[in-house]
C-alpha cells in the first residue's frame, strides 16, 4: 500500500498558487514533508486528507482514488490537523467515543476497549472524564492524536504536530509516532528539521508549492558530507562574506554569528569543515545548491 501523488496542483481563489505539479510516491513508513511556512504543506496535507480538492492531478492510496472516492479513504484515514478546536463542554472520553462511532466502531464493547486503550496510549486516561475545555495545549494535541488513531488507519497525516509542545511532550509524541510507522503510510509535515531527522525514513522538501527534493534523509546527508564549511564572522563583515561565498545559513552561537557555506572545496581561510546534518541539507536545498537533478546523480533507487 503506497500513496501515489501525480501532478497535483492547486491555486486558491485569491490567486495564491499553493501547489504546483507535486509528484510524490510515499511508501509505508514515516515520511517527512519539510518546508518553511507558506510552502504549501498544509494544503497538501488537507488535500490528501480529503478536505480539499486539487485543481489538477491525482492521488491514489493503493487502488483507491483519493480525490474521487473520499468516503473509502476516510474509512482508513487518520488526520491530525495543524490547528483544531474542541468542544469545551464535553469530556474527552465522550467525544472520543462519539468519533469512534463515526469511524465505524459500532460494537459497544469493542468501542470501549479501543477508547480505553487509546486514552492510555496518549496518556490521557487519568483525565478522561474532565471537560476538554480545561485541557492544556499539549493535552488537546494528544486528544487529537487519539482521534486520528481511531480505527487503526492505514493513512495517517500529521500536520505540524510538535509546534506547540514543550521538549518533554515533543519527545513523548515522537515516540508515539515512531511505533506507528510500520504498517501504515504516515506523513509528518513539519518545519522542524529535527523531527524529520529523528523519525523519518524518507522525506521531501517543499517550498512555494514545488517539491525541491525527494530523498532518504541519511543519503541526502551523506551526499553533502565534505561540502559544508563553517566560519565565525563579525557582524560587520557579513555582507561581504555573503557576496563572496554561497552562504546557506547564518546563526548565532553564544552571541556570535556563525555562517555555514556550501562549497565543493575549502572556500578559504577561517573556514573549517563541518559534519553535515539534515539542517544543512534543508538550507542547501532552499538556497538552490542541491537540486533534484544533482541529487539524481547521487541517488540510487528512486
Amino acid at each position: 500500500m503506497e500513496l501515489r501523488i501525480r501532478d497535483l496542483s492547486k491555486t486558491y481563489a485569491n490567486g495564491v498558487h499553493a501547489l504546483r505539479d507535486i509528484t510524490l510516491t510515499i511508501p509505508r513508513g514515516m515520511f517527512g514533508l519539510l518546508g518553511p511556512n507558506g510552502a504549501g504543506k498544509s494544503t497538501l496535507m488537507r488535500t490528501i486528507a480529503t478536505l480539499q480538492e486539487p485543481d489538477t492531478g491525482t492521488i491514489h492510496l493503493g487502488d483507491i482514488d483519493v480525490v474521487r472516492d473520499k468516503d473509502r479513504v476516510r474509512e482508513t484515514l487518520g488526520y491530525l490537523p495543524q490547528e483544531f478546536g474542541v468542544y469545551p463542554r464535553v469530556t474527552a472520553e465522550r467525544l472520543l467515543e462519539h468519533f469512534a462511532v463515526l469511524k465505524g466502531i459500532t460494537d459497544r464493547r469493542a468501542r470501549r476497549e479501543v477508547v480505553d486503550a487509546l486514552l492510555h496510549q496518549v496518556n490521557l486516561y487519568e483525565v478522561r472524564k474532565k471537560k476538554l475545555g480545561g485541557y492544556s495545549g499539549g493535552m488537546k494535541q494528544r486528544f487529537g492524536v487519539a482521534v486520528a488513531l481511531l480505527g487503526d488507519p492505514k493513512l495517517l497525516i500529521v500536520d505540524e504536530p510538535t509546534a506547540g509542545l514543550d521538549p518533554a511532550e515533543r519527545v513523548r509524541f515522537l515516540n508515539l509516532l515512531s511505533e506507528l510507522g510500520e504498517n501504515s503510510v504516515v506523513i509528518l509535515s513539519t518545519h522542524i528539521v529535527e523531527d524529520v531527522s529523528e523519525l523519518c525514513t524518507r522525506m521531501a522538501i517543499i517550498d512555494r508549492g514545488r517539491i525541491l527534493l525527494e530523498a532518504e534523509p541519511l543519503r541526502a546527508v551523506a551526499a553533502l558530507q565534505g561540502r559544508i564549511w563553517r566560519r565565525i564572522v563579525p557582524r560587520a563583515e557579513l555582507p561581504a562574506v555573503e557576496r563572496e561565498h554561497a552562504v546557506i545559513s547564518t546563526r548565532l552561537l553564544s552571541g556570535r554569528t556563525v555562517v555555514h557555506v556550501h562549497a565543493d572545496a575549502s572556500p578559504g581561510a577561517g573556514f573549517e569543515a563541518v559534519e553535515a546534518n539534515l539542517e544543512d541539507v534543508y538550507f542547501s536545498t532552499m538556497a538552490g545548491h542541491v537540486s533534484p537533478d544533482a541529487e539524481a546523480a547521487l541517488e540510487v533507487g528512486r
Binding site: G15, V16, H17, D207, V247, I248, T250, M286, A287, G288
Partner: peptide, 19 residues
Amino acid sequence: DPLADAAPARPGGGAAALG
C-alpha cells in the same frame, strides 16, 4: 505571481534580513 517564478532568494537562511 511574480514572486513564485523568481529565483529562490539568495543567500538562504535569512542572511539578508540580518545584513
